[in-house]
Design a protein around this nucleic acid. Structure first.
Lengths: 274, 274
DNA sequence: TGAATAGTGTCTGTGAGACAATATTAT
DNA sequence: ATAATATTGTCTCACAGACACTATTCA
């Protein structure tokens, strides 16, 4: 092995092709909340979580749905910049909450070659979205936890329905980390089923000690709407008085009211930092 | 652009060198607890967190200390397998708690070429370590949070002392995520200062709702020792009765006692799952 | 008027924080 | 005997869970 006198000399002689190399992508789990209208004029609309998927135009997985993503340009951008570039392309927005989720790296996760993917969770208020990409579509999420650590997820955009099951295996020496294995998946490309589950769990775990939920809310909202978002993320009903106590210091009253339901109008609130 | 009839045909024709590629490494933040003996025969030894560093034999950063790590072999292994391989090399142990921490990817983080690093936190009881690698050494950690989101960290192995400061900037639209910037760092290679801080914060955040701490404890321990480990991780004193209440359901009494301190002997406990 | 949601009051139980008190060892 | 740690008892306060109750709208 050649001996170098200093780091500069070493770097000038360095051969980047000495080792086998690989490709990386950023994949984005863009989540939001959708309103499901109810026919009964008295009832309020139901909330659901929704995820943005894009239809693949090319091989591999041509014609299947997948999370928006793109290859990292190793010479010029970080993974987060790459994620922002993809988000801009798909939503035409630049100012979106973004958080690194997990790096998925199964050797065979991409049939072309070794591709490691760093996934990001992004949260947005749908009202901000005016022109999403023509190949993209919002899918409403239904998540059912079965008794035996199987999670059954259905995604629906009104036209296509995507269903898959993921089995969770508690990791050795851990009480909170699971390995995911995709049990059944016909319609979602790559390992994106895992990304979706990991992201939903991340949001669920963080909702109570952060303010992330407000990234999915419009500027003005009722406490009933906010509570519904909490409920759909946590997957359980909350008691009204308890919820209002907990949320009180995160919101600020306004003098606006929301009327028009067949019931008592409700006050509009806005997010209060700190 | 050529049109393919099916995925098989597409894959056979796929050119892996069409896009610029990059290298990846797994870097491991191996943490443990060390006992600092006190001269006074009555006093118990103090606990500190410690981290395993290795001295770089080659350029870049030749002669500096860094976290153990290694290049990913893209053809055969996952990042976690790579991390385990490095851990085996440095500690000769295979069964170590391991958890993916964060993927660090600044464009210029490695002077050779674009290298993205996925870091892992590993926790171990030092009593399990019989032969660590000759180029590796345990450094005791002193962490001081200054008022202005600067964190001052000192690492000491009895011979060398490494000090650096990291500035934390709250991320936009977030209440819990920070960007780290290395303010001052002479002795630690790469961006490993960030990895150390991120890992220590991860452990601190998880200690109260997981059982990770027991991965750093010997089989039998006193509640005083366990409390000290909590205190050093959390960076604050805890009240004895409160700690015992909280920890009670995670530990199991044994009939062993620890004697020999200049004071009342204390019962030895062991970890109780679930 | 009544269905539906908005919003408040209050009781209770749990559990953490705080502090006091007792127990037991080696020198 | 004493310094030091081990261990337990108990009071209080904050707060979430639970449930009851009142308020207000629109077809």
């Amino acid at each position: 092995m050649k001996e170098y006198k200093n780091e500069k000399e070493f770097l000038e002689d360095y051969d980047v092709n000495e080792f086998e190399r690989l490709s990386m992508t950023s994949d984005i789990l863009l989540l939001s909340v959708s309103d499901i209208k109810i026919s009964n004029y008295r009832k309020t609309s139901k909330k659901m979580m929704s995820v943005l998927l894009v239809k693949r135009r090319d091989f591999p997985y041509k014609g299947k749905w997948c999370l928006p993503g793109g290859f990292l340009d190793p010479l010029s951008e970080t993974l987060e910049e790459c994620a922002k570039r993809v988000l801009k392309r798909e939503t035409n927005l630049s100012n979106i909450y973004l958080e690194q989720l997990f790096t998925f790296d199964d050797v065979k996760r991409d049939p072309r070659t070794r591709v490691v993917s760093t996934s990001y969770v992004a949260l947005v208020d749908k009202n901000r979205l005016t022109d999403i990409s023509s190949d993209a579509s919002w899918f409403d999420i239904t998540l059912i936890e079965e008794k035996d650590d199987d999670v059954f997820i259905t995604l629906d955009n009104g036209v296509d329905t995507i269903s898959f099951t993921i089995h969770k295996t508690l990791r050795k020496m851990s009480t909170d980390r699971y390995d995911f294995s995709i049990v059944d998946n016909k319609d979602l490309a790559f390992d994106h089923a895992k990304v979706i589950l990991a992201g939903l769990e991340r949001i669920r775990n963080k909702i109570n000690y952060t303010d992330i939920v407000f990234n999915m809310m419009p500027k003005y909202f009722t406490l009933g709407e906010l509570q519904q978002v909490y409920e759909v993320i946590l997957g359980k009903k909350l008691l009204d008085p308890a919820f209002r106590r907990i949320i009180a210091h995160k919101v600020e009253q306004t003098d606006k009211m929301q009327t028009g339901g067949g019931h008592r109008p409700s006050r509009l609130f806005k997010y209060k930092k700190n």
